[in-house]
Design a protein around this nucleic acid. Structure first.
Length: 609
DNA sequence: ATAGGGTTAG
């Protein structure tokens, strides 16, 4: 049945007479009109009506016609497209050509249906249609998006077999696919084998994004710096998003700030994705005020921007404000997703609002039908643990619908340490050791707890057990950025000793600290050595090295910003408080969980972290 | 007259 609205727009081809006075139909004009109709289609109903017309006019089997191709691509690739209907059309085509096969593959990938796409690809080979250089980018994109390395590698094989290994688009897709699947060496090998002449902005964008998504942030930044020297480089948002995320993870505020300046100078307006990345960068690099101002000035905000702002406020310790922004987000009509609830629950745990947190959790699962992830349970464990409800937290973990991971048990173990619940602590440490992760860290925490409770026999026993594992404690490191370069300090690393002036500075710092009344707290050093050796070790903790380096290399009016991979030890926390007052510096440290703003001998965490 | 590569959060 042909719909009236469409029917009125189409003039059916009229029979014409040729020079023998025979009546013929001019199909070409019919085709033209069908195509223009297809282009106007706004939904699947209109498309179906146009399809009927094409069938009625017999234009679907005309080998010179583009109608079927148009029809298929409109159906499979438009925003409102339906792959079910596309499959129906596709089945009716007698002998599909490579264009039609490719369209089907791309359609399935758009629906994230890699298996169907692979089936179409195999069918294509079976009927003897050669894949072309349009085939592989689509299918590799699907492998990338779904992180299906196995299939990705198979198709890399096909690329070679069919001789497309030198096609630039295929190479870019391969770089992206390997990057998304975490195989950075493979991405790099494709990139390296490419001719410099062939590399485009998209190629660089792919390799830079690949480094960012495999957490190789420093390498990502150096690649970006290399890119900016190329003549086809232009200010462009997408590359900067990867760059900004690297700055965020490295805590490289200065670099991030100059990227921001660069964007403002070169582009008239920024899209919401880049602005959200900038917001995240400012917040996670410790500039809460800049981030907040930036957020308020953003003209376009989406749920992601809100989500970033909410978790930003939460891990800076402003739980109440985070919840206020959350209610603003709901008022504006943005649907909360599972990610924003991680921020909301963190906010509750920072402010110690156990009941409120549990309420939010209930609302999330019941009202919004969001399936809780292990991160949400992690927030709840944090929430209960901080409030001293360690037994309840333990029960919660035991009754979760999924397996607990080590982060969850560590969070609880830490709560047990803070609240000195030795009995439960032992149980939790047991759980952690059963997880068989290659670290003696549970022993370390347990031993600290015994030491605090003055149970020296248990301390000795735990240390002996730890020694038997032969494992080394996870190395702690601190990052600091000076003059657009990020420096990494690893605890007890001897490399720093060669750094000019650092030993002198550390000596000077210790001298002044002693004068002000600081004494080293060796209770968390777990070595069976004498007190001197312990003090020596303590003084070479990565954060202290980084602070010394910062004091030497940054101006007196600037803050020192440090990013750590682990929690601070008690001594480093105390030490940093003293330094902030002696040297009159703001020191901002980001640890695994939150920010510590040190100023005038105090810390924003109020010594509870 | 139909098709392809690179883009953010815990």
């Amino acid at each position: 049945m042909v719909g009236t609205s469409v029917h009125h727009n189409l003039h059916l081809p009229q029979p014409q007479e040729d020079h023998h006075h025979r009546k013929t139909f001019d199909f070409t004009s019919g085709e033209q009109q069908c195509i223009s109709l297809l282009k106007k289609c706004k939904n699947i109903q209109e498309l179906k009506q146009s399809h009927c017309l094409i069938l009625k006019l017999g234009l679907d089997h005309n080998s010179n016609s583009f109608c079927t191709g148009h029809l298929l691509s409109t159906c499979a690739l438009s925003t409102w497209g339906s792959m079910d209907y596309a499959c129906l059309i596709f089945q009716q085509i007698d002998s599909p050509d490579s264009f039609e096969f490719n369209t089907m593959i791309r359609g399935h990938i758009k629906d994230m249906n890699l298996d169907e796409a692979v089936m179409v690809y195999n069918q294509m080979l079976e009927v003897g249609i050669q894949p072309n250089n349009f085939t592989y980018p689509s299918i590799l994109k699907g492998c990338a998006y779904l992180q299906r390395l196995k299939e990705g590698m198979q198709f890399h094989g096909h690329v070679f077999k069919h001789g497309f290994q030198d096609d630039v688009f295929v190479q870019n897709s391969l770089i992206n696919m390997y990057g998304k699947c975490g195989e950075i060496t493979q991405s790099w090998s494709v990139f390296r084998q490419m001719d410099d002449f062939d590399k485009s902005l998209a190629t660089w964008s792919a390799i830079i994004a690949a480094h960012a998504s495999t957490q190789m942030w420093s390498e990502c930044l150096s690649l970006f710096q290399e890119l900016t020297s190329k003549n086809y480089w232009r200010a462009e948002e997408s590359v900067l998003v990867s760059v900004l995320s690297s700055c965020t993870n490295l805590g490289a505020l200065e670099l991030g700030r100059s990227a921001h300046g660069f964007l403002i100078r070169n582009l008239s307006g920024l899209n919401v994705i880049v602005e959200t990345s900038l917001l995240d960068m400012y917040l996670k690099c410790g500039s809460l005020v800049t981030g907040l101002t930036f957020f308020e000035r953003m003209k376009v905000k989406n749920q992601w921007s809100y989500s970033v702002m909410i978790s930003g406020l939460a891990f800076h310790g402003y739980g109440t404000e985070a919840l206020r922004v959350f209610s603003e987000m709901l008022e504006k009509g943005f649907e909360p997703d599972e990610v924003v609830y991680v921020g909301v629950l963190t906010a509750c745990s920072q402010t110690g609002q156990v009941e409120k947190g549990l309420d939010f959790f209930k609302k999330m699962t019941v009202d919004y039908k969001i399936k809780p992830t292990i991160q949400h349970y992690g927030c709840l464990v944090n929430l209960m643990g901080k409030a001293g409800k360690v037994k309840e937290a333990f029960d919660l973990i035991e009754n979760m619908p999924m397996e607990a991971n080590d982060a969850l048990w560590y969070s609880l173990l830490d709560a047990c340490r803070v609240h000195q619940d030795l009995e439960l602590g032992e149980k939790v440490a047991e759980k952690l050791l059963n997880l068989n992760s290659q670290t003696p860290d549970p022993y370390v925490i347990l031993s600290n707890m015994y030491a605090k409770a003055r149970k020296w026999e248990n301390v000795a026993l735990t240390r002996r057990k730890m020694g038997q594992t032969g494992l080394m404690k996870t190395p702690g490191f601190s990052l600091i950025q000076v003059k657009r370069k990020v420096y990494k300090f690893v605890s007890n690393d001897i490399k720093w000793a060669h750094c000019e002036g650092l030993s002198d500075m550390i000596y000077q710092m210790e001298w002044q600290l002693k004068f002000e009344g600081y004494s080293p707290d060796t209770s968390e050093v777990l070595l069976d050595t004498d007190e001197d050796e312990k003090r020596e070790r303590l003084s070479r903790h990565s954060q202290k090295l980084a602070i010394a380096f910062g004091l030497i290399n940054t101006s007196h009016d600037s803050s020192i910003r440090i990013v750590r991979n682990m929690r601070m030890c008690k001594d480093c926390h105390n030490y940093t408080k003293y330094i902030s007052s002696i040297f009159e510096r703001r020191i901002i440290v980001r640890d695994r969980n939150r920010f510590h703003h040190f100023e005038d001998g105090n810390c924003s965490c109020k010594d509870y972290w």
